[in-house]
């Protein structure tokens, strides 16, 4: 029992926090109708940015603790801006969201490697870890708590405030929303900021808590794992947080399957296969209530003046 508790605290906490934040961010972005194909690239970029910010500030401030916190905030802010660029760009121009999303994915991968390497070449390879988020029980408990609080806040925003209603209206029918005076671009810009900040936080914590260091390619595919969780939670924050508990556990445990005699390649592939499987299973459930249904305009180009 005690061991299980220990495991929850030490091993699961970082994974859970990372995936839940990123998946909630992705859920918010897709709720406004923008297909989130950028997520994996921008997740990789977040995890690299966090490293470089952290080593930069710890050199500047000559101390670890404030530097990592600063890095966390700045990463969230940078990625929020990039995400809002992504959501805005795919709204103001009637471009294929898929193509813009893939471009951002590739740019995110490449830029992530560049940014991380800059930090690494300038300051050397070193461990970075959010000072407060050590191994203690208290810190893990408060990390769980803050994640739950963040998810609750997003939930309230999405379902209890006007901004959230605007986000969902734009995700359902942007033309109609714009006819009643909702600014589609403005709403998607704000949604990009919010969702991007969450993905950025997730990616940053991946480096600053789960890994505690950096190497090129770090975070690759973990964005997709978060994406799968957001789909599995039907893009509904509390549900995302709930299913994330299950899938974070799976993602953490599956790579250990090789201890049971499975080939290492199978345990590496297991999280990917699991992600695909949950997306398929969950998407095949029909007749969902209005709060859980897929946003109607998801992935469709928005073109204001249209005569049919």
């Amino acid at each position: 029992m005690r061991e299980l508790l220990e495991w929850f605290v030490q091993i699961l906490a970082p994974a859970y926090v990372v995936y839940t934040l990123a998946a909630t961010g992705s859920a918010v972005v897709e709720r406004c109708g923008v297909l989130n194909l950028a997520i994996d690239g921008l997740f990789v970029l977040s995890s690299s940015l966090a490293y470089t910010y952290a080593v930069l500030f710890s050199a500047l401030l000559q101390g670890g603790a404030p530097a990592t916190w600063l890095s966390l905030l700045l990463t969230a802010a940078t990625v929020a801006l990039l995400y809002s660029l992504y959501t805005t760009l795919s709204t103001v121009l009637p471009v294929s969201q898929g193509a813009i999303g893939l471009s951002f994915m590739f740019i995110g991968y490449g830029l992530g490697a560049v940014v991380g390497n800059i930090g690494r070449i300038a300051f050397g390879l070193r461990g970075v870890r959010v000072a407060y988020l050590g191994a203690g029980h208290g810190s893990a408990a408060s990390a769980y708590l803050s994640t739950i609080l963040a998810v609750t806040a997003v939930y309230l925003l999405l379902y209890k405030l006007k901004l959230g209603v605007m986000i969902r209206a734009v995700g359902e029918d942007p033309r109609l929303a714009s006819q009643v005076g909702v600014s589609v671009t403005g709403t998607r810009l704000l949604t990009g900021l919010l969702g991007g900040a969450l993905v950025g936080l997730g990616g940053a914590l991946f480096t600053l808590w789960r890994v505690g260091g950096w190497s090129q390619g770090q975070g690759l595919n973990h964005g997709w794992l978060a994406y799968a969780i957001s789909i599995a939670g039907w893009r509904h924050p509390p549900l995302v947080a709930l299913v994330s508990l299950f899938f974070s556990t799976a993602y953490v445990l599956l790579p250990h399957l090789q201890r049971l005699g499975l080939p290492i390649e199978a345990s590496t592939a297991a999280p990917y296969v699991t992600s695909i499987a949950i997306m398929v299973v969950v998407s095949s459930i029909r007749g969902r209530s209005r709060l859980l249904a897929d946003p109607k305009s998801l992935g469709r180009a928005f073109f204001r003046e249209e005569q049919v």
Partner: peptide, 11 residues
């Protein structure tokens, strides 16, 4: 990484 940036920007 540089090829990825190239692909992304060009796309």
């Amino acid at each position: 990484a540089f090829s990825q940036i190239f692909i992304g920007i060009t796309l």
